[in-house]
Structure formats: structure tokens, C-alpha cells
Design a protein around this nucleic acid. Sequence first.
DNA 1: ACATGTGAACTGCTTCACAGCG
DNA 2: CGCTGTGAAGCAGTTCACATGT
Lengths: 207, 207
Amino acid sequence: MKRIAESSVRRLSLYLRYLEDFERLGRATISSDELAQCGGTTSSQVRKDLSLFGSFGKRGLGYAVPDLATRLRAILGVGREWRVIIVGAGKIGTALAQYQGFRQHGFKLVGLFDVDPERIGQKWAGVTVRDMERFERDLRRLRPHIAVVTVPADAAQAVIDRVSNAGIKAVLNFAPAGVQARDDVTVRNVNMALELEVLSYALIHGA
Amino acid sequence: MKRIAESSVRRLSLYLRYLEDFERLGRATISSDELAQCGGTTSSQVRKDLSLFGSFGKRGLGYAVPDLATRLRAILGVGREWRVIIVGAGKIGTALAQYQGFRQHGFKLVGLFDVDPERIGQKWAGVTVRDMERFERDLRRLRPHIAVVTVPADAAQAVIDRVSNAGIKAVLNFAPAGVQARDDVTVRNVNMALELEVLSYALIHGA
DNA sequence: ACATGTGAACTGCTTCACAGCG
DNA sequence: CGCTGTGAAGCAGTTCACATGT
């Protein structure tokens, strides 16, 4: 399959969120124009994004809501059960562990790790914090697909290395550090400080 | 000044992070090539990004580390004291309130708001949770520059509206909902569920 | 000799416009 | 007629290559 732009994938994910709202409301069809307005884009963009994966609509009518939702779920892999571990049981790690939207979208927390003896043994969202000492061994049993990294910046690279070496192919990194990883590992960075600086820039230089 | 791409601003923010590391180590100069390797980009890209704002380097030598850091801080507005409020004192809101990197980069938490009587009056990072009833009134005194929104998805749009009407021009939205705002208000969305779906897509379709 | 700064070429995402089909 | 699907055009961001300055 041809390479898809990340921006398209992000939009597909957004479309799906809206489709699920419409699905709940029992709406039968939706036009590219309506989807565009929800997602803050254009109808051309919506049609282009969808056409990358096939022809899902009916000309003159629009898209069947439940059908399109099903197809998007298949494309994005939503609904499969992905096993997720969180490394770093501090403020953010434990907040994420308890985040509801997590499980709702098919992401199942199967492990929580930390190095701090105070934190090891604590339970969050039904999962016990394990010692990083036993990381590799525990991972062989947990077989996670995704690692969420919420450790301090200076520990992030080492954790990403251990995670990659353990065979995990997808990482969501919350540590405010630019990390390197083998290119068979997809790393996404969420960086509060960086987002705030973009806002700071916007405030100074005008929206 | 000419319009700058958001991707450039994000990279500038990253460069600054690395420069501050080098500054701490007492390093005098750095080349575009070294900065590029830190940030996972190319030396051309680094030079282009910096040249958007002026000529900061010396040919044959590179960039003076403290000087470049100072200039980037000025460009990004880092070091100014930005007053920040957090709306929504749930798990994520309170975790963010206690996040250290926050204040370290010149972002000062001046208010915390919620609707839940259980949460109102609690103190986090030295700031008391206030009632949303008194939101507009309190804001006139707090005069925040930035609002961080950590409320449930279904409350997000209403909060963004109140925030915008109160004259705040920058919003960091953690609610998993595509929100609309007047175009004099900069909104940045941080969406866990969306990031996980991008990872899910990558896992299925290959890095 | 070395590394910046920048016009020019290139790549790729977005928008346009319309043919095609229900 | 309405709305999709898509090639073509337009535009923005990235990379290239080299003249320029130290």
C-alpha cells in the first residue's frame, strides 16, 4: 500500500470520532462537507483522505455512517485489543493509567513500571507497579504492543532503548526530550513544554 | 514579519532545549550540523529555520551557544512570565498543575477551576481550585494569557467559548474533542486517543 | 578550509474543478 | 440534480548546491 501522510491519518482519526457521535445519534448518512465542518477542514480534503483507502461513498448521497465508521476502525486498527504498558508511575503516568478513554478505544493497560521502591507495588486502575529490574522478564509474559513513556527527560533515552530492544514497535513519549530510535520503531512525542512555547510564540507574533 | 510555518516554530523550540543543555556544559559554539543531529533533522533545515529570523552565525565557525539561546528565547517568548490557568481539576489537570517543567520555562500557574464541589477548595501546587461559577469575575483579576483545558470532551466547547469571551488568546486543549474557536484565538490540541490511533495505524501498516 | 546564508529545484500535501454516477 | 472520486494545478515546506564571509 502506498505511503499515507501522517496528517491524513490524524484526520481520519478525527473523522472517526465524529462518525461515532453521529452513529450514536442514529444518523444514516453524512456528506464530505459535513465531516469537513466538524474537523475544521474542506470537503475536498475529506474525500481525498478517504479515497486513499477506497471508494466508500455513494455519489449524490454521501457516506453511510455505520459503514464508514467500520471501515475507518479497520484502517486505524481501532477495536483490536492493543496491549499497552506505561513506564514511569509518577504524576502523569498514573493519571494516564486512570484515563478512561484509554480502554474505551481498545487500548488495554497490561503493565506499569517504575524504579522508585516507594511506587513499586502500588496499584493503579487494577494494575500493580512493577520494578524496572524485572522489566525484560515481565515483558516476555505481558507481550505489549505499545509503550507509553512518562519518565524524567534524562531517563527517557535509556528507557526507549530497553523498550525497543524488547521488541516493542510503537512508543508514545511524554518525556520532554528528543529521543532517537531504530526506524522500525514508531515514536510519537507529546511535549507539553513545546506546545506551550508554540502558544507563547503565537501570543507574541499574532495568531 | 512573514508568516512562519508551525513546523519551524516546533523545531526552534527543540533547538532551544538542546542549546540550554550545551549552555549548561559551557560549550561556546555549535554548528548547524550538530544541532541537526540532536533534533533529528538536517543542517540545511536548521540554517533555514534560523535564517527566518536573522543571521545569527559566523561563517566557518558556527553559532555562539549563549547568544543563539538568548535569541531563540526572545523569538519564542520563553523567559517572559506567562500567566496560565487550568480549567478542569481532574486527574490530568492536577497532574499538569504539579508538573515542574511548567514553571521552569516561565509559565506560572495562577488559577485552577472546576465545577465539582468536591474539588473546589482543594489546593494543588499552592493554587486553590475555584468554582467555575466565578470564572469570569476571577479572570478579571488573574488576567491569564493561556488557558489549559482538561475537562471532559462534552464540556470542552463551552469552556473554550467562555475562555475566548474572557479575552484569552491561547488555549491548550487536552479534551478529546475537535473544538472551534474564533481565529484570533490560537488553540492547540493534545489528544492522547488520537496519538494512540496513529500508533495503532503504524503497527498495522508498518512503521 | 570551513560553515553559514540563500536562491533554485524538488517533493509532497492541499485545493481546484469537473467528469462520473446514483 | 447532488455529491463523490480524481487528475491537474497550486502552494508550502524541504533539500540542494554554491556563493559568501571569516
